[in-house]
Design a protein around this nucleic acid. Structure first.
Lengths: 110, 110
DNA sequence: AATTAATATCGTAATATTGCAATATAGATA
DNA sequence: TATCTATATTGCAATATTACGATATTAATT
């Protein structure tokens, strides 16, 4: 049905899924990678970096912002984007958990 | 158009996006969390754990398997699933990069 | 061989996502 | 104020995802 039964899952599960989903498109990975590289923000530059039209990029930026993975500051008539620490911190403990698990090499099928 | 322009992005960007996308649904987060908890695998148990019908769970398991995040072993007429280290290792360096970046607190907008 | 049990696949309806042209908005500048 | 520049929003077509009933498959059990 294309409609996710969010109400049947925990808040944590829904939040992690929302964050992962926001990263689930190569354009949005590219945006995050670019922000990690140039550190301080840009926006028209992101449009120039990506092989997509300006409205499409704007939409991807909106999704990353809504998920809490990037922030945008108004700078005159331009908007400056950068990484939002909060969103990535929410993911961190999940992956820390997985890494600890994998380091202990318990992951064998039956 | 609902069709992603994968060919315009790098292999790394597409791979990370595929992995993130596979985790971009609460049911699939729940499956991974369950496998982390019970360690060795199960399958009918996963169906019982989730508030979804058996074909739906089967579909989610398939997506996680295709992404390389879980593995399945045939055990008689049952199938035993567990975490697949490889998939999660691919994500690790991306998040390590982000964590290093955030620890250096360079993330300020213009 | 027939039945049971566990899982996958098919088919389909409902909804979501992707992409962009056209247009709107808002600030800067002439 | 008119215009330019940067970004967002709207509207829509194409495609993808989600969910599940019905059915198929495969192996164990009787």
């Amino acid at each position: 049905m294309g409609i996710t039964k969010s109400e049947h899952f925990t808040d944590e599960q829904n939040e992690l899924a929302t964050l992962a989903k926001a990263l689930g498109h190569p354009a949005r990975i590219a945006i995050v990678q670019h922000l990690l590289k140039v550190n301080s923000c840009i926006c028209g530059d992101i449009v120039n970096e990506l092989p997509l039209a300006q409205p499409t990029v704007s939409q991807h930026l909106k999704e990353l912002k809504n998920a809490g993975l990037i922030k945008g500051n108004i700078e005159g008539n331009a908007i400056c984007y950068c990484i939002n620490e909060e969103g990535f911190n929410s993911i961190k403990s999940f992956f820390d958990h997985i890494n600890t698990y994998l380091e202990n090499k318990k992951n064998q099928c039956c």
